[in-house]
Simulated assay, not measured.
Amino acid sequence: MTKRSSPAKTGPQHLVLLSIDLLDSSLHYPGDHPPFESFHFDVHITSKADDEKSQVLVVVTIGVHHETIASQLGSLTINCTFTMSNFADVVRLNAAGQPDMPDDLVETLHSTALSTARGVMFATFRGTFLHHALLPLITPGSLTEDKKINS
């Protein structure tokens, strides 16, 4: 008797980034201070799904801090909207209404949204006192919930 292999996991097909929306940004200049050389980042990432539109929305919020200043220096929130041709086969809503997706899809969506946030952050803070606050590269899968990053 031969053992049957389990069916292959369904992955996203024709994954598309539909939009990038800057939801919020702020700068809080701390006054006279030597140039900043190192920063700390609070990164929050959440996903939600819109079944009617067959879309996944990934919201990334980044807070920028410095170790010698108690208050937040700046922040940025973006929304990335994704779709895929086989949305109904890949994305399910759990009892809490949150999307239940394969881990590799979550990793891809989060990684893409973080990279996009990095670019939007650079463009938004360019020429300000946060010009050198560059979000470091984050290993895919290492950011599951809220995380503090140092650079």
Rank of each mutant, 00 (worst) to 15 (best):
D104F: 11
V60L: 04
M1C: 06
V90S: 04
A113V: 06
D32S: 05
T10W: 02
N86T: 02
P34W: 09
E107F: 00
A8W: 00
S111E: 04
V106P: 04
P140W: 11
L135P: 02
D24C: 01
G11T: 09
V59F: 13
D32P: 04
T77A: 15
S151G: 10
D42L: 13
P102S: 08
S151M: 07
P136C: 02
L134R: 02
L17K: 09
F36M: 15
L135W: 10
P102C: 09
L76I: 14
I45H: 08
S26I: 06
Q13T: 15
F125Q: 01
I62R: 03
Q72I: 11
S6D: 12
L57T: 04
H131C: 05
L57I: 10
L23D: 12
L134W: 02
T112S: 14
Y29N: 12
S111R: 01
G127E: 14
L73D: 02
F129H: 05
S85L: 06
L17I: 08
A123W: 01
D104R: 10
S75A: 14
D103V: 06
V106A: 10
D21P: 00
H65T: 01
R126H: 07
T81D: 01
A96T: 03
T68V: 04
M1P: 11
D103A: 07
F36P: 09
Q55V: 05
D42N: 09
S38M: 04
S19I: 00
H66A: 06
T83R: 10
D21W: 03
N79A: 13
P102Q: 12
K3E: 14
T128D: 02
E107Y: 00
V56R: 07
D100K: 08
P12E: 11
P136V: 01
V120P: 00
A96I: 06
T81H: 04
Q13K: 15
T10N: 07
I69L: 14
M121Q: 13
V91M: 06
H110S: 06
H65P: 01
F82A: 06
R92S: 05
V106G: 05
S25E: 03
R4W: 08
T108A: 00
E52L: 15
S6T: 14
S25C: 05
P35F: 05
F39A: 03
L18E: 13
I138R: 14
